[in-house]
Amino acid sequence: MRSKLLTAFLILLFALPFALLGLLAVGEGWRFPAALPPAYSLEPLRGLVAGGNGLLAGLGKSLLLASAVAVLATVGGFVVARAVVGARRPGRWTALSYLPYALPPVLLAVLIQPFIIRMHLSGSVGGVLLGLLLLALPFATLLLGSFWSQQATEYEQLARTLGCTPGQALRRVLLPLAAPLLRTTLVQTFLLAWFDFGLTNVLSVGKVRTLTVQVFTYVGEANAPLAAVASLLLVLPPLLLLLANKSALLRKP
């Protein structure tokens, strides 16, 4: 009984955001004190499909940015993690990788802003990408560090004695062995970029309008329906990732 109550409470707690956001997205002229919208309209959704409100462009931009960050950070992290294991003092390099945890993304963004401006990257997708990589690359390096154990080296050496060139050993042995961890890292770094608002907002100076930036703008304009649609769009891809691969979502640094 107690167990069922607890389960029901948690379901309610976690389902309520989706229900309320859904109602806000399709409710029309929903003002205090009405508990439910007086009328429903698919206008915000139609606008989304027609591309009139820029949400579709924001979705595309967010997808592109987060995918680019995920791929670059995962590939880079794989290579850097390998170099860290072979370094003279791997502990120091691991400590260095924890640095981004110390700085809140928005603080990091305002600190590097003067240099981003000097590199003529301010307000560009490239500038935001660089900022996000500053967070995602060390994170990926830490995650992938656990792959480069003694055993990975032994596998690589064995592949070499069986006749593999270094490239073949990488493609046919190391990458397949690392595949599950690489998948997790891709998901994690994708989400890191996908969820980010503070850093993107500062470095984009209003020009790179990703979905989170749009949610914030619509909230500022008190446009609850569009803010809700943008929110639901933000939640959808991670929800699909969750259904596809639950374990990749739990972040354990």
């Binding site: 032994e154 064995l158 070499r160 004695t161 062995l177």
Partner: peptide, 17 residues
């Protein structure tokens, strides 16, 4: 290089792929 020596080194662990 090891891949041209045709000499296989076997570990205590079988290290199957």
């Amino acid at each position: 290089p090891p891949n041209e020596r045709q000499m296989v080194y076997l570990y205590q662990e079988p290290l199957l792929f």
